[in-house]
Design a binder for these strands. Structure first.
Lengths: 239, 239
DNA sequence: GTCTTTATAGTCGTACTGACTATTAAGGGG
DNA sequence: CCCCTTAATAGTCAGTACGACTATAAAGAC
């Protein structure tokens, strides 16, 4: 077939699925909704829904994000298209092609209002197994993608509030990667990357609890990390 | 909307679009087809077509790839989902959601048989402007993605035949990135990465023309590069 | 005060890389 | 046949980055 010129084509239902990720209490959490109907009634699933007639997938994803999180303003949140899942049997009712997105947000308010009446909650990533449809796979792909992008982009700040300490930024890396990082080295690397973070000028300091108060930073204008901040990938061989 | 449970949904046409890339005569080329019908009649476009009822996007993409290239065996070729384009106005006739793929292949035979009767040809990337629909954008995204993946994966070998010289491999990088690389340094880096390439054992050597004959290599088992082979991204500051 | 905790400063050696120079092995042209 | 060109391969050297540490500072807990 060349260039859409065949006339016979199958109509498909097109949906968006959202892997909404955040960090709560030092653990990666995903936003899940409980299904009320068959198939998979009573199972947890990623939030999502059908595209409206005049919507792009990105528009639909941001609309769903606002509905599901109950946040008034989702314009600043990082939303990224993951990939499209189109296996014929992925929805037993009909042929559904789903465009999956990953959304990252700072630790949000617990009350997830808005949206429908169905129950929605934050679930620790490690406990989110047995999801409906192929959502286990989508969620795992989202985590892989985010983990990879932490290496070579400034994405980590998307998990942080507007102002944050370097310790909090480091926790983002440690939580998503599941590895410990050396604090002085992390600090040196982040500060040596121009535009990654910039100090909050007003000698601002904040302490969440014990220890020396940490300086506050906010996200800088850079979007990519050069050189990247690599997960010690030296596996198998001592390099 | 939660979990597909709304009943009203719009049916969409779903297609795949392929950015089939190869290297010919030291330049990146893309496979294009000439449109015979409106809209965009007479314009060049990326090959593609509708999903069949029981096909995934990946299956449809590989089928189209075989049809358009006329190659008997496309199973070994690198095929990668890029992203999905779903802007409402991207096809003036109807609502079409298109899953775009990038395919990489070694310099193929010129006769592009198979497929339909419409004309198909290899076009240098730099001359491929003014494509139909949003295909300019898709093609640019494909080049960006491939260029980025050259940095941290072994993808470059997908542009090479089964056996190749390090000079040919270096040309892949130079052509896609549009930069010159130092030959000894490139060699050192590639050979120091375990599993990237492995020497063809039979003291095999091949000369394409002048100069000292080069040793032959084939793609190794590795898929990722650690540490990555970075484009000198030092722009703006002397680092 | 002392202890604990966390942030921040600095050191040291190794690995990696960019920029080079040198050598080897072919073909082409007189 | 000699010399020049071309391309592959070998090797050097210095600057940078980074992992592993040690040390100091500034807060709360007891």
């Amino acid at each position: 077939m060349r260039g859409y010129d065949k006339h016979a084509f199958e109509p498909f239902a097109v949906t968006v699925d959202l892997a909404v990720l955040t960090l709560r209490a030092g653990a990666l959490h995903a936003l899940l909704v409980e299904r009320g109907q068959e198939p998979y009634a009573g199972r947890w699933a990623l939030p999502g829904g059908f595209l409206l007639p005049e919507e792009s997938a990105e528009t639909a994803a941001r609309r769903e994000l606002a509905e599901e999180t109950g946040l008034a303003d989702v314009t600043g949140l990082h939303l990224e298209q993951l990939r499209t899942y189109s296996e014929p049997g992925r929805d037993p009712r009909m042929r559904v092609v789903s465009v999956a997105f990953a959304a990252l947000l700072p630790d949000p308010p617990e009350p997830l209002g808005g949206g429908d009446a169905a129950e929605a909650r934050w679930m620790p990533y490690d406990e989110a197994a047995g999801l409906a449809f192929d959502h286990d796979r989508i969620l795992a792909d989202a985590r892989d993608r985010v983990g990879a992008k932490l290496e070579y982009t400034c994405l980590a700040t998307a998990f942080c509030p507007a102002e944050f300490t370097l310790g909090e930024l480091q926790q983002v890396y440690e939580t998503v990667w599941g590895t410990a990082l050396d604090r002085p080295n992390f600090r040196r690397k982040v500060l040596a990357t121009p535009g990654f973070v910039e100090a909050v000028p007003g000698a601002a300091r904040l302490t969440g609890g014990r220890g020396k108060p940490a300086a506050l930073y906010r996200a800088g204008p850079a979007t990519v990390l050069h050189p990247p901040l690599l997960r010690t990938p030296r596996e198998g061989r001592p390099a």
